[in-house]
Write a protein that binds this DNA or RNA. Sequence first.
DNA 1: CCCAATTTGTTCGTATGTATC
DNA 2: AGATACATACGAACAAATTGG
Lengths: 254, 254
Amino acid sequence: MPPATTRSKTEPRLSRPEQVARKIKDAVVERGLRPGDRLPSEAEMMAEFAMSKGTIREAMRILEAQGLVKSRTGPGGGVFVHEVGTERARALLSNYFWFRDLTIADVYQMRRAMEPELAAALAGHLEEPVLAELEAIAARYAAPAATIEEERDQHVASLDFHATLARQSDNPLLGFVIGFTVSLLTEITLQRQLYEPPNEQLRATGHDYHCRLLAALRAGDGGAARAIMKAHMENAWSLMGNQEALALGRFLPD
Amino acid sequence: MPPATTRSKTEPRLSRPEQVARKIKDAVVERGLRPGDRLPSEAEMMAEFAMSKGTIREAMRILEAQGLVKSRTGPGGGVFVHEVGTERARALLSNYFWFRDLTIADVYQMRRAMEPELAAALAGHLEEPVLAELEAIAARYAAPAATIEEERDQHVASLDFHATLARQSDNPLLGFVIGFTVSLLTEITLQRQLYEPPNEQLRATGHDYHCRLLAALRAGDGGAARAIMKAHMENAWSLMGNQEALALGRFLPD
DNA sequence: CCCAATTTGTTCGTATGTATC
DNA sequence: AGATACATACGAACAAATTGG
C-alpha cells in the first residue's frame, strides 16, 4: 500500500472517518474475514486508531451504507461483516443512473442482448415449482385489464416474470444485471405511467411469448428459448417505443 | 409516505441517522435538486430534525458513502448534491460480488452477449481521435512480451481496449455494465495471475481481432463489427477458460 | 419478571481546522 | 491579516437495546 503522503492533488485528502473505513475494509480483506465475523468494538477501535467515538461511529456508518457491515446492540453485539444484499446493491447502483436519464431504447438495447442468453442457459434447468410460479405470474395477464390500476398491475407482473427468471440464473453477474435492468424498467414505466394509454397488443403478444417461452424452457430446448426471447424483446421494444413516444407527446403536444 | 408505525418486523426500524438520510434523499428527489445544489447546514438540520450534531453528521456520511452528496468546509461551504461518479458506482457494485466468487465463464457469458451489441452500435460513430487512441492501445500488444511483467501489462492493455470502447457508448447503461464487467475481469485476472503462464496464442489472436474490429468500426460496418467481436469473445473465452483451468491446477495439482 | 452487564446509540459543550471575504 | 461561517473532531455523560442470571 502506498504511503498516505503520495496522494495526488485531485483527490482531496480523506477525512478521518473515511481513513478508518478504508483501513477496516482493508483489514477485512487481508484477514479473510467472512460474513458474520465480528469487528473490534467501538472502544477498541477508539484505542486502536486513537480517535474519538464520534469519528469511529461515522466510519461504521460509511461501511454500513455500503452494505458491508451491520451492527447490533447489547451483549454479544458489535459490528459484523455482512454480505451485500441484492436489494441494497440495486439501490446503490440505481443512484448512479438518477441524473443520467435513461431511455426505453437504452434499456431494451441491454435486454435484447442479455435476456435471450439467460433463456438459453435456463432451458431444462428449472425445477417444477419454479415453472409453476412462472405460470402463475403469466396467468395474471392472460386476459385484458378492466381498469387502469389492473393495467398497471399487469405491466408490473409481466416484468416480474423476467425478474423471477433472472433469479434462477446460476451466473450471479448475469442474474444481477438482468434483475437490475428489469427493476430500472419497472421504475421508468411506473414513474412515467407508460402503462397508459392501455396497449392491448403489448399485453396479448407479451403473454403469448411468455407461454411459448415456458414451453421451450420446460422442454429443455435452449435454441428455441433463445429465439422466442429474442423475438419477444424485439417486439416489446417496438411496442414500448410507441408507448414512450405517446408519453412524450403528453408533454410535447405538437 | 406511510407512517413509521407501519414498518414490518423483518426490517429492523431505522436508526436516526438512517431516518435523516432517507428524508434528505426524499427531499432532494421531491424538490428536484440538481448536482451542485446546497443542502441545509448542519445547524439548520439539527433544528429541522431536532437531533444532535453527531446524528446529523452520521446521516451525511451515509449519503456521502453512496456518492450522493459532497461536503465542503469554510464560508459558502456545506453539503452539496453530487452526481454519483462512474468510479464510485463501480466500487460500490464490486462489493456485491465480493463473496460471490465469479468464474471466468460467468464473466464471459456476459461479454459474449453485450460486447458484440456495443461494437455494432459504435460502428461509424467514433471520432478519429478515439480511433487513434484505440490503435495506440492495440499497438502495446502487437508483439510478444519478453517478461512476465510485460505479459501482465499487455493483458491489462487489451482489456483497456474494451474499457475504452465502453466509454464511447451513448447508452449509459450498456456502457457502465460493459465497463464494470471488464474491470471485474481485470481484477480477477490480476488477483489470480491468469496472465501466467504466458499464452502467446491469446495475445496474437486478440491483437488480430482488435485490428480487424478497428477496421470495421472505421468503415462503419456494424454487421462486420458485431461478427468480429462475437468471434473474438468466443475465442477469448475458450483460451481464458484454459488459463483458469491451469490456474486452478496450480492449487489442485492432481 | 426483574436486574445487572455489555455494547451500540445519542446528546451536549467545546475546541479546532479550513476556506472566503 | 483578521473576521466570519462553515464543517470537523473530541470528551464526558446518558439512553436504549439485548443477553443471561
